[in-house]
Computed example of a mutant assay.
Amino acid sequence: MTNLGNWRKSSYSGGGDGNNCVEIANSPTHMAIRDSKVPTRAVLTFPAGAFTAFVKAVKTTGTPER
Results as ranks from 00 to 15, higher is better:
34 R>P: 00
21 C>R: 00
14 G>K: 07
21 C>V: 01
64 P>V: 08
2 T>F: 11
44 L>C: 12
36 S>M: 02
45 T>R: 08
1 M>E: 05
40 T>S: 13
36 S>G: 00
27 S>G: 15
25 A>Q: 02
4 L>M: 13
16 G>A: 05
47 P>T: 08
62 G>W: 08
22 V>N: 00
44 L>S: 12
22 V>A: 00
33 I>L: 15
7 W>F: 11
42 A>M: 11
5 G>W: 05
30 H>N: 07
52 T>A: 11
45 T>E: 15
61 T>P: 00
29 T>P: 07
5 G>D: 08
44 L>H: 13
61 T>Y: 14
40 T>H: 09
64 P>F: 11
3 N>P: 15
48 A>H: 13
52 T>E: 07
16 G>W: 00
31 M>I: 12
50 A>N: 15
31 M>W: 03
10 S>E: 12
23 E>N: 01
51 F>G: 02
59 K>T: 06
60 T>A: 14
40 T>D: 12
6 N>G: 06
5 G>L: 07
57 A>I: 00
10 S>K: 04
60 T>H: 14
3 N>W: 11
66 R>L: 14
37 K>V: 05
13 S>R: 09
60 T>K: 15
1 M>R: 10
35 D>T: 00
42 A>Y: 13
20 N>L: 08
46 F>V: 03
10 S>W: 06
14 G>A: 07
2 T>M: 10
39 P>I: 01
50 A>W: 06
21 C>T: 03
61 T>N: 13
52 T>V: 10
36 S>P: 00
29 T>Q: 06
15 G>Q: 09
53 A>Q: 06
23 E>T: 00
52 T>C: 02
27 S>Y: 01
5 G>R: 09
1 M>N: 06
6 N>A: 10
19 N>A: 05
3 N>Q: 14
16 G>I: 02
66 R>A: 13
15 G>F: 09
26 N>D: 07
66 R>V: 11
16 G>V: 02
22 V>K: 03
48 A>D: 07
39 P>M: 01
57 A>K: 09
23 E>H: 02
18 G>I: 03
18 G>D: 10
34 R>W: 06
46 F>D: 07
11 S>V: 06
53 A>M: 05
12 Y>N: 09
12 Y>G: 07
30 H>K: 08
49 G>N: 10
33 I>F: 09
62 G>S: 13
22 V>F: 12
63 T>Y: 14
47 P>M: 11
32 A>M: 09
26 N>V: 06
16 G>H: 01
62 G>F: 08
31 M>S: 14
34 R>S: 04
18 G>Q: 08
12 Y>M: 04
19 N>Y: 13
40 T>K: 07
33 I>N: 03
40 T>M: 04
39 P>D: 00
43 V>Y: 14
